[in-house]
């Protein structure tokens, strides 16, 4: 498995698509969590409620950066993590390299776990870099806004990192699962994004109207990802989060474990034709 892990790392490191996805995560995080809100705040339209304006400003400050980074990774970042998961597995089918690596030496389980470990390492790096980008952006904006530069407490930082990692792991695992299922990249990305961006949205709309739909919605991936992010201190105008942290952690872990387990079993059993 060590050999597979090394080979997978080599592939991930040298693959342009991985760098593109990584760069996109950082760039969009800075743009949507910091640049755009700052521009809105600086060129504030008249008549914007004070509360909203204040929350907008607070969200740019250093004290809230773990929450900002995590919120981003729970939303758009999650979709990009899903794409990363699909790419790391699905492309092997597109290029036909599954058969090449499976005729080397390690068994299928070993190949798949080596791949999973390499992807986990990549995600750790991605989460840390995202936090670093958020940290830098918020320091700069805190200065620009003339507020005092005050680091959030260490515990908050680690909770943010942990929550973010769990969130992107769950999304990536879903991507890998879809790729194994469809033995393909395009279809897996398509279906994954439709689920993340459309299906959950529609279910969310009905969830506010019907009780049993709401119960289902409370076990969905994007819903729990953003719920977990909102447990971290955020300058919110809204009330406390409706799902407990424990619930969200459990549900996200469930998604992670179940999608991964099914992917392993299918990958192990199915013919490579």
């Amino acid at each position: 498995m060590v050999g597979s892990f090394r080979a997978e790392l080599r592939k991930l490191r040298k693959r342009p698509a991985v760098w593109v996805v990584g760069a996109l995560v950082i760039a969009l995080l800075v743009a949507f969590q910091y640049l755009l809100p700052y521009v809105v705040y600086a060129t504030v339209p008249r008549g914007m409620p004070r509360g909203v304006l204040n929350a907008l400003k607070q969200s740019l400050l250093l004290g809230y950066f773990p929450g900002s980074a995590t919120s981003f990774l729970a939303g758009l970042g999650g979709a990009l993590a899903l794409i990363l998961g699909v790419l790391s597995v699905g492309s092997e089918y597109g290029w036909g390299t599954v058969k090449t690596i499976l005729t080397q030496r390690p068994g299928r389980i070993s190949v798949f776990s080596g791949k999973a470990l390499a992807v986990v390492l990549t995600l750790i790096v991605l989460v840390v870099l995202s936090f670093a980008a958020a940290l830098l952006s918020s320091i700069v904006l805190t200065r620009v806004l003339g507020e005092s530069v005050q680091m959030p407490e260490g515990g908050l930082l680690f909770r943010g990192l942990g929550a973010s990692l769990l969130i992107v792991l769950a999304w990536t695992s879903l991507g890998g699962f879809l790729a194994v299922l469809f033995r393909n990249t395009a279809l897996a990305v398509g279906i994954g994004l439709v689920y993340a961006l459309v299906v959950e949205g529609i279910v969310g709309v009905f969830a506010s109207l019907v009780d049993w739909v709401r119960n289902i919605h409370d076990f969905m991936l994007a819903r729990n990802a953003s719920a977990l992010a909102s447990v971290l201190p955020q300058p919110r105008t809204s009330s406390a989060p409706e799902l407990s942290a424990a619930h969200s952690i459990l549900v996200l872990s469930g998604w992670l474990v179940i999608t991964f387990a099914i992917a392993v079993v299918v990958f192990r059993q199915r013919d490579v034709t």
Partner: peptide, 21 residues
Amino acid sequence: PAFYPFLSGRDNLIAMAEYSG
């Protein structure tokens, strides 16, 4: 033959050597 298009011939072989030990 099926290999990774973004890797050089040499890197492809190195990856395969890592898989196979």
